[in-house]
Amino acid sequence: MANVLVSAPKQARAGEIVEIRTLASHPMETGFRAGTNGTLIPRDIVREFSCSYGGVTVFRMELSPAIAANPYIAFHLRARETGPIVLRWTGDNGFSVEETVTLQVA
């Protein structure tokens, strides 16, 4: 089950800096591990994470197999205007999850 958790404040003052913290259910299988029969377990990772705010990409990350399973990613944003914050995880085997939270800016 594709499943993500996003912790972000619901409101902020204009100009205030807020922290966005995320967790995603994903095995982050490195592609370097051998299974019981000795053959390599194929790589299955989240390759990219991005955040857009009010339609503009404000943060982007390229992940490698060295990112821990069930990736935790935390970063910051400067609150500008009330608007959707769209978080997107994409990866191997067609993995794609999107989650939207709304920030009310006073």
């Binding site: 503009v56 943060f59 390229e62 490698s64 935390a74």
Partner: peptide, 20 residues
């Protein structure tokens, strides 16, 4: 391990994750 791209909209240059 990772590349992260940020900018003025980030407000603060601070990124956290967990690695193997």
């Amino acid at each position: 391990v990772f590349h992260a791209w940020l900018g003025p909209a980030s407000g603060r240059a601070r990124v956290a994750t967990r690695i193997k």
